[in-house]
Structures are given as C-alpha cells and as structure tokens.
C-alpha cells in the first residue's frame, strides 16, 4: 500500500535524523531507543544503513585495522576511490591496507594490501610521522590518519580524532580536526570540531566549530619532506593550542557577560527579593484601585 510505505519512509527519515544527532559514544544508546520507538527491526535494519554510514564518515569513527596494532579513521578521505557502494572499502595509509567496514558493528574485514602512490608517499609518510608525534604530545586517546592527494590534486589530508567516553560518570567528548595541506597553493586550511555531552541529571552539550587557514611559509615550502612536515605540524600545534586557550576565554565571557545578560545571579541590589514587600506594593496598588500611586502624601 502506498500510504503505509510513505509512512515507513518518513519513519526511517526521522530515525536517521535522530541517529545523526547522537552525542559522542552514544550511538548505540540512541539506536536502542529508536528500535523501541519504531518497533520494526526489519524496516530499521535496512533503512538505517545510510545514516550509520554517514555518521561514521562524518564523525571520524575509528577502527582497529586488521593485522596491525593501531587504529585508523573512517572518513570521506579514507574511502577507496573506485570501490562500489555495496562493497565500499576504506584505506589505512599507515599500514597500506584496505578493508571492508561494517557500519553497525564498527569492524573491519577482508584486509588487502595496496600499493601507495609512489610520488606522494614520501611527503605523506613524513606528515604522518609528524602528526603521530603531535598526537602523542597533546592527545591522550587520539588517532590520526594522513591521506595522499586524490584525483591528480596536490591536497594531502591530515585527520585527527580523540574520543573519551565515560558513561559511568555521564559524560563523553570528541575532538575532531582536519587539515588540507595544498602544495599547489601552498596553503593549509583546517577545521576543529568539539562535541561534549554531560548528562548527569541533565543534558548539557558543547558544540564548537572553528576554521583556520594560513599560507605555508616559503622556507617550509622549499624544505625536505621531513623538515616541512614537522614545521607544518608545529604550525597546526600552535593554532590548536591557541584555539583551546581562546575557548577558555569564551567560557569566561559567556559566564560573565552572556549569562548575566540573560539572568542575573542576584538583582542589582545584591540581595534576594523581599517578597512581603513585593506583595505589599502590589496589594497596596490593588487596594488603592485607580487612585494616584501615593495615597498617603
């Protein structure tokens, strides 16, 4: 029937929309809620796949790379260019392995070695090494993947993701950054995204987005891959550090100005209201009816 199938589509669309709003590390909880609300597992199982895939790619979901002891990032940059949608493969340039990825179980399978692009590999692996040591210096649970240019461009992609899930204490957080290092325009453009959820007896969320772009200094452009890569990562380190500190200032500002602009902590008098007086004034005004405001004078 046309009517019911329309309705099924709408329900799937709504479910997908919920899923894409999942806070870090809570996708399974959200999915369980949706399952119970939709109560049609067959419909859901089939219909929710595109949303799961979109979520994983957007959120830089990390995966254990088969036959290695490291993780890599699932993202648009990690997609193997010519793989079919039904058999979509993702690349881990670090181990030079491509794999199939299950968007529900978050597991990789069918690992196959691939040949990296020889012309780009030295620069890519230099960026990767620099990114790994940057990660070690500033992130406790971080994962990075660095990708070679695609489609004849000269745009390397550095991705970083750090997740911390602490459901016992009702919080979770995710930091994502992505930098495009373009060796044609000699420019780096990047973005940092932070999502925090704290839900102990409440639902409080921080969502930030920050974009940055800067020229690669000429001395860095002409340097060897290893030197250039560590300089570029040093610049990124500087930007991310500056951003994190500016975020603290933003918190301060929000607390002191914005929050106060909405609701003061105390009235201008620095005292709580005298409710008897508040009532007295009003009562007095009511008793005096339409008479002037100063009945006794």
């Amino acid at each position: 029937m046309d009517d019911s199938s329309m309705e099924a589509n709408d329900r799937i669309r709504a479910a997908a929309n919920f899923l894409l709003q999942s806070p870090p590390g809570e996708i399974n909880d959200v999915l369980n809620d949706i399952r119970n609300i939709i109560s049609d597992d067959d419909l859901l199982q089939e219909g929710i796949q595109p949303a799961l895939r979109e979520y994983n790619i957007e959120q830089f979901t990390v995966v254990d790379v088969p036959d290695t002891n490291h993780q890599s990032i699932i993202s648009e940059a990690a997609r193997e260019g010519d793989s079919l949608e039904s058999e979509e493969r993702f690349l881990d340039p670090r181990s030079k392995i491509s794999f199939l990825f299950d968007h529900l179980s978050l597991e990789a399978s069918d690992p196959v070695p691939f040949e990296p692009d020889e012309t780009h590999e030295p620069y890519r692996s230099a960026l990767e090494a620099a990114s790994l040591s940057y990660l070690k210096a500033h992130f406790t649970d971080g994962v990075t993947s660095v990708f070679s240019p695609k489609d004849g461009s000269s745009r390397y992609v550095i991705q970083i993701v750090a997740n911390k899930y602490n459901p016992t204490n009702f919080w979770a957080g995710r930091w994502r950054s992505e930098y495009i290092v373009d060796l044609t325009s000699n420019r780096v453009s990047g973005k940092m995204l932070i999502n925090i959820h704290y839900y102990e007896q409440g639902n409080v969320q921080l969502a930030t987005s920050h974009t940055v772009s800067f020229d690669i200094p000429p001395a860095v452009v002409s340097a060897s891959p290893n030197t250039a890569a560590s300089k570029i990562l040093a610049l990124i380190e500087g930007e991310e550090g500056k951003y994190q500190i500016s975020l603290s200032d933003t918190y301060q500002e929000m607390g002191e100005k914005t929050f106060k602009g909405l609701r003061r902590a105390l009235p201008l008098t620095r005292q709580k209201l005298d409710w008897d007086k508040v009532m007295g004034y009003k009562l007095g005004a009511e008793l005096s009816g339409s008479k002037p405001a100063f009945p006794n004078s």
């Binding site: 930030t208 920050h210 940055v212 918190y251």
Partner: peptide
C-alpha cells in the same frame, strides 16, 4: 591567516 568559529553551549 584567517580564523572563524562558533561555540554553542546549551543545556536543560
């Protein structure tokens, strides 16, 4: 260099 960003803090 260029920078741009938004911070949204919300809660109930």
């Amino acid at each position: 260099s260029k920078r741009d960003g938004e911070v949204s803090l919300s809660g109930s």
